[in-house]
Amino acid sequence: MYLRKETIVSRDKFSLEGKNAVITGGTTGLGLSIAECMIEAGARAVVVSMDPQEVFDENLGKYGDKAAYYQFNITDTDHTQALADQIIAEHGNIDILVNNAGNHCKKPIEEMTVADYESVLNVHLVGAFAMTKAFVPHMRKQKSTSIIFQASMTSFIGQPYVMGYSTAKAGYLGMVHTLASEVSKDGVRVNAIAPGWIDTPMFRKATDNDPERKAKILGRTPMNKVGEPNDIGMAAVFLSSDAAKFITGICLPVDGGALIGF
């Protein structure tokens, strides 16, 4: 007879205390929110970004030694392993890797060049692959680590004028599924987050003077509102914590129900 073991749900299961998280593109936007939420959950955020040091200092300097910064272009894949080795040498074990860095090119297909397309893929797919490949051998040895890819609504639905972006974001699903099947047996969990429409400066810039577009977005979102940046940050904390210790190979929509909205 199977006897159910009593469990206690505590805040400790959601804690990232003592963990090191590498976050690409973590100085602004949703990456910044992920970094802040992980710091608040107890982790140290090791941020990799092309932004100048001043942007990091302005947005994350208040956290002192709970945040560290490395200026790096993730498309410089010849030097990704050297960066990973340096981060491990300077910070010790890396428990969490968040592939968040992105690039965007909004053009109709007639205007998009092959170079435009390749540029977006290089940032999202090739850069994320190189970063993941550089850290996976280290993370396998620890037996309890987490890799997160920042997917998108365009991983699932069509959106005009973003051919490269949607290709890359859909590609993340293949990366998550394949990588999870390879490394989960070694305690490396691999998941993705698909943000819906989130109240960021980019969203406001796109909708503040376009009430028709904003109404369309809200009309297909069952919760009838846009999300907050920390909705994405806390989803990343959850997927990296012991509360999600049996979750791997999934893409979690954080979208107010937009994917099932009509």
Score class of each variant (00 low, 15 high):
Thr200Met: 11
Ala243Val: 06
Pro137Glu: 04
Ala206Trp: 11
Ile94Thr: 05
Ser49Lys: 00
Phe129Val: 06
Gly256Phe: 12
Glu36Ser: 09
Glu40Thr: 01
Ala21Cys: 04
Asn20Asp: 07
Pro137Tyr: 08
Cys37Val: 00
Arg204Asn: 12
Tyr70Trp: 11
Met153Asn: 13
Gly164Leu: 01
Thr207Ser: 15
Ala115Val: 04
Thr248Gln: 07
Asp95Asn: 14
Asn73Tyr: 04
Ser184Tyr: 12
Phe149Asp: 00
Asn100Ser: 12
Gly102Arg: 05
Leu179Phe: 08
Thr221Gln: 08
Leu3Glu: 14
Ala236Pro: 07
Met38Ser: 00
Met139Pro: 07
Gly31Lys: 06
Glu54Gly: 02
Val123Gly: 09
Met38Gly: 00
Met234Ala: 03
Glu118His: 13
Asp186Leu: 13
Thr24Ser: 12
Pro222Trp: 04
Leu83Ser: 06
Ile8Glu: 15
Asp116Trp: 12
Asn20Leu: 00
Glu17Pro: 04
Asp210Asn: 15
Thr145Cys: 14
His91Cys: 01
Ala21His: 09
Ser119Val: 03
Asp116Arg: 14
Leu97Asp: 05
Glu228Gly: 02
Ala180Thr: 03
Ser146Met: 02
Lys245Val: 10
Leu16Val: 03
Asn224Arg: 15
Phe56Thr: 05
Gly164His: 07
Glu110His: 00
Met153Pro: 06
Val162Met: 10
Met38His: 04
Gln159Pro: 08
Gly64Met: 10
Phe129Gln: 11
Gln159Asp: 08
Ala151Pro: 11
Lys66Cys: 02
Ser184Cys: 15
Lys216His: 10
Thr27Ala: 09
Lys169Ile: 08
Ala258Ile: 12
Pro229Phe: 10
Thr207Arg: 15
Ala258Tyr: 13
Glu90Tyr: 02
Lys225Cys: 10
Ser240Ala: 13
Gln53Trp: 01
Asn191Val: 09
Tyr161Ser: 12
Met163Asp: 12
Asp76Arg: 08
